[in-house]
Write a protein that binds this DNA or RNA. Structure first.
Lengths: 223, 223
DNA sequence: CGATTAATTGAGTCCACTCAATAAGTGTGG
DNA sequence: CCACACTTATTGAGTGGACTCAATTAATCG
């Protein structure tokens, strides 16, 4: 648990203080919401096990997956700006999270510089990650989007000490399509094509990346 | 200047302390970069006058506009996560910015709770704004994207005390297209069509929003 | 095991793209 | 001030990539 909740960048001697703030854990069953858009914002979370998607809704009801959090990653920053969550967090599988009360974390950040630094970096990382996803949605072809997504998951798995080559995606083709701005059919076709080209080996939601370099060079729209 | 640099949420009696941190201002000529992707991150900025776009580059050189900052808005948060800026900031017109050294701001945030709160909200707002833009790029049709963009600018103008109905956009059709994930030709055609429908009155980069409610109801892809 | 949800694949359509040509700005120097 | 070069914007014609609709097939789960 020490490694999972707000992990990097906190000096070992400060861990007890952080643990004093992390009051508790909570489990979330598959399909259940950790929080919903509009809920009052009280806590940040760190995914302890499992995986969670964040979903944002448009006025007219259309929904889009705006993020995916794997074990070890932080969650809930969307509530800071307005004291209400801007999106919903839904478990993709039975998961558990650490609860980090924001008010207490704020106080801790005023006492401990490295905690302040860590929280700022966490927010900064999300800002950069979302900007990168804007590039994916705005500039890449369907093939490139799927390739970029697979490589992103692969990289994040590697960082967290799991296999970068094999993983269980847990989300449906529809979720993937929603996150990547395309239809579930196009996602499915693209994965099938990647498989035929020998780039991946997909059995439903279980993905084996055979040729990461190949994925990295999946062609641009036309040029 | 008091209203422009880190404006809302800072109590009046704390302003002198904030002003001690805002060391200086800087002007940026049209087309010039305030900072470039890869530059070391030292300062946050507040746009004092003019407007600035942020641009992110893909490995292969493709660029995309990821944000637009108007007078009164903050800039530079993309550098916090890695101590290097993740995108470039380019002036759309001759502009000036306040320079807020990050290290000093961090110290101030540890001393003054409302400053900490303000910085957190600033970052949280950017996170939510970017998530909303992901929705625009992933779920909306070309017409809806342009309408959403115009309404966003209109709203931000209103918040800053300018006219929500008339404004000079300053960016080219290409910049708009890049930001909205479409080609400059499609942007141009869409604006022309809006004009024929009596939704807007556009003279080049000068936009007059005639029927904001109409814009809000620009149709979905098919349904 | 049967019921339901998820994934694959095919056929045909359409929206936004590319390519291209013209028009309208913008700014600079003679 | 106008003429020139250059950038930006508009509009047209035709194409194509991702969409919709539809029909199976494969998983998943009570």
């Amino acid at each position: 648990m020490r490694q999972l909740c707000m992990p990097q960048g906190v000096a070992a001697n400060e861990l007890p203080q952080l643990e004093a703030v992390i009051c508790s854990a909570r489990s979330v069953r598959r399909g259940e919401s950790l929080y919903r858009a509009g809920d009052s914002f009280d806590n940040l979370y760190a995914v302890r096990s499992g995986s969670i998607k964040t979903v944002m809704a448009h006025r007219d009801g259309r929904e889009q997956v705006t993020g995916l959090r794997l074990a070890g990653e932080a969650l809930g920053l969307d509530g800071i700006s307005s004291d209400q969550h801007a999106c919903s967090a839904v478990a993709l599988e039975d998961s558990s999270v650490c609860i980090i009360p924001y008010v207490e974390l704020k106080h801790l950040c005023r006492e401990i510089g490295s905690m302040q630094e860590r929280l700022h970096k966490l927010m900064g990382e999300q800002i950069v990650r979302e900007a990168a996803q804007m590039m994916v949605l705005g500039s890449l072809s369907a093939d490139e989007r799927v390739a970029a997504f697979l490589l992103d998951i692969s990289e994040r798995n590697a960082q967290r000490g799991y296999s970068p080559a094999e993983f269980n995606l847990r989300m449906t083709r529809e979720d993937m399509g929603s996150y990547l701005g395309m239809t579930l059919e196009t996602v499915s076709r693209t994965l099938s094509r990647f498989q035929k080209r020998g780039l991946i080996d997909a059995q439903g939601r279980f993905i084996h990346i055979v040729d990461p370099e190949g994925l990295r060079h999946v062609g641009a729209p036309s040029t």
